[in-house]
């Protein structure tokens, strides 16, 4: 790993951001945004995870290879989710009333 020394201030700022985002998560839980509920929750969680990976796990400070490794593991997770959901979301398209199956 790199020997990059990160100022304590950065850690505190990131920690603060994570706390704020946690508060936002709790607050938005009291409102109903319809279909956007999950999108908002997962969006906030993704931002928080990104902050942790970039700053606390030092991915921002390593060589270029490290973001590639982290990015590809995320991409592979997305492949798993996307193709699996592609099955689930399209199952209903050909219901019992469908004439050619």
């Amino acid at each position: 790993m790199s020997n990059h020394i990160v100022p304590v201030r950065v850690y505190l700022l990131v920690f603060g951001a994570l706390m704020v985002l946690t508060t936002v998560t709790v607050v938005v839980a009291y409102f109903d945004f319809g279909v956007l509920n999950n999108v908002i929750m997962l969006g906030i969680a993704a931002v928080k995870a990104t902050l942790v990976v970039l700053y606390f796990m030092h991915v921002r400070y390593g060589t270029q290879l490290i973001p590639i490794v982290v990015g590809s593991s995320v991409l592979w997770l997305l492949i798993l989710l996307a193709f699996t959901l592609a099955d689930y979301f399209t199952r209903g398209w050909m219901g019992a009333g469908s004439s050619w199956l």
């Binding site: 193709f83 592609a86 099955d87 979301f89 399209t90 199952r91 398209w93 050909m94």
Partner: peptide, 11 residues
Amino acid sequence: SSQSVYAGTVF
């Protein structure tokens, strides 16, 4: 399996 025909076509 019960996989959707559309997903099956893509695969």
